[in-house]
Each structure stands twice: as structure tokens, then as C-alpha cells.
Design a protein around this nucleic acid. Structure first.
Lengths: 113, 113
DNA sequence: TCATTGCGCAACGATAGGGTTGCGGATACT
DNA sequence: AGTATCCGCAACCCTATCGTTGCGCAATGA
């Protein structure tokens, strides 16, 4: 239940902690793109973007395939779903007020704000 | 309302990129807890946990209130929802195959490779 | 009043991350 | 063939972050 995901969530969440990488993800959400296309809108070298892509690939958020001298990138929506699922699970857990109340009582405080 | 502070997604996602902090979040999902309670299960000093809490607090994922010499922490589910929402939005965007197809065509490539 | 507990801040060393340039391999163009 | 392009790797800085120790402050309890 808690240790259910093959790859650690650490790298995936950390990867999304960078604005450039999130922008890449946003771009890929609207369709596949090559490294060059992804790098264009940014004011950094293509190597930097290539590295970001490598990070996103290693943590499973995107996939790459060889197409000639291009390396088209594709968003891995399933992996995104895993991250979304973790957050959602915490929210659902929180939503079950029974547990919250239990802890409140244990902490010796009432919910009267 | 929703157009207040979007940028801090960086810090929030990055915060969840640390296993210790995710564990703290998981703990808080089941109910509020003090810094000491949160630090107990970990093999690090309370200062380290206190710092993690500070990071989670600054990026809005948790809140703290003063209760005597205690500092009970509470999970901010709304903030969690924002992160979940961003991921979900990318997934929905991806799900709209029209855009994907459009980009495929624009890239001059078909999935037959 | 004095000692203890809960917690945060500041400073330190060690490590990881993002950016750059330089280089080389693979593929496309002429 | 030769050249240009796309892309990744490796080396190098620079800065941010994790963990530690030491200290200090406020609240509790004797």
C-alpha cells in the first residue's frame, strides 16, 4: 500500500520541482516534441534542456524514441497518474475526519479553532 | 481567488521530492501532530525535521499554530489540491487526442515510424 | 524560583543540482 | 565525398540543500 510504486517518487516529484521541467511537461502534454523544439522557447543551451529531459526520462515522466537524428519525447501519462494518485490518497486520508478527530483528541485539543 | 499565487509550484513539488517530507505529509494526512511527534520515527535530529517542516510550511503544504510550547502541524489539503490539479490538467490535456494528432501532423511524422 | 522540555535559528562541512563550454557520434543535405 | 545539424556526454563552476552541533527562548512543572 505505501510501498507500491516501483520507482521512487522522490525523483519524480523533485523533477517537477523545476519550472523549466514543468514547462517541458506542459509542452509535451499537448503533443510529442523533439529536444530542439523543447529547447527553443528557453534561454538556455540545448545541453541544459537535454539534461532536463534526461532527468524526466530517468524518473519515468517522459519517454524518448530514436527517429533518425531526432529524439522525439512523449509524456508518460501513467507515471503522472501515479504522482497524482499519491497526492489524492493523502487528501482522501485527510478527508476521513474520523482519523483527524482521533488525533485531535489524542493531542488534547478541541476543534473549536 | 485562484489567481493569487501560482508560481510556488516549484517549491511545493520540490518539497515532495524528499522522502522524509512525504512521510511527514503522510503522517499529517491522518491527523495533526507536533514537531516532536513527527520527528520521533526518524533517525535524524529534531532540528533536521524542524527544517523540513519549515520548508513544507513555507511552500504552503502545511500550517503551524502556537499551542504553548508546542507547534502542532496541520496539512493544507487545498495546497495539495493545487498540485494534484496541475498534474491532472496535464493529463487531461494529453487525453485530448486532437491536440496530440495535430502536433504529430505538424511534426511531419506518423506513428507508423 | 530554578530546572526541564519543545522548538527554532545560525554556522559549519559534505553533497547534489543547474548552468556553461567543448567534444564526438549519428544522421541528413548537397 | 564533405558539410551541417541534432543530440548526448564529460568537465568545470556556483549555488542550494541536507545533516550536524551549539545556542537561545518560551512554556511547563517542581
Amino acid at each position: 500500500m505505501s510501498t507500491h510504486l516501483t520507482p521512487p517518487l522522490d525523483e519524480a516529484f523533485a523533477a517537477l520541482g523545476d519550472g523549466t521541467r514543468r514547462a517541458i511537461v506542459e509542452r509535451l502534454a499537448s503533443g510529442d516534441a523533439t529536444v530542439g523544439e523543447l529547447a527553443e522557447p528557453f534561454a538556455v543551451t540545448h545541453q541544459a534542456i537535454s539534461r532536463h529531459i534526461g532527468i524526466l526520462r530517468r524518473c519515468g515522466l517522459i519517454e524518448q524514441r530514436a527517429d533518425g537524428r531526432r529524439r522525439p519525447c512523449r509524456l508518460n501519462v501513467e507515471r503522472m497518474g501515479e504522482l497524482e494518485g499519491w497526492i489524492g490518497e493523502q487528501r482522501r486520508q485527510w478527508a476521513s475526519r474520523l482519523d483527524r478527530l482521533e488525533t485531535h483528541v489524542a493531542s488534547g485539543q478541541d476543534d473549536a479553532r
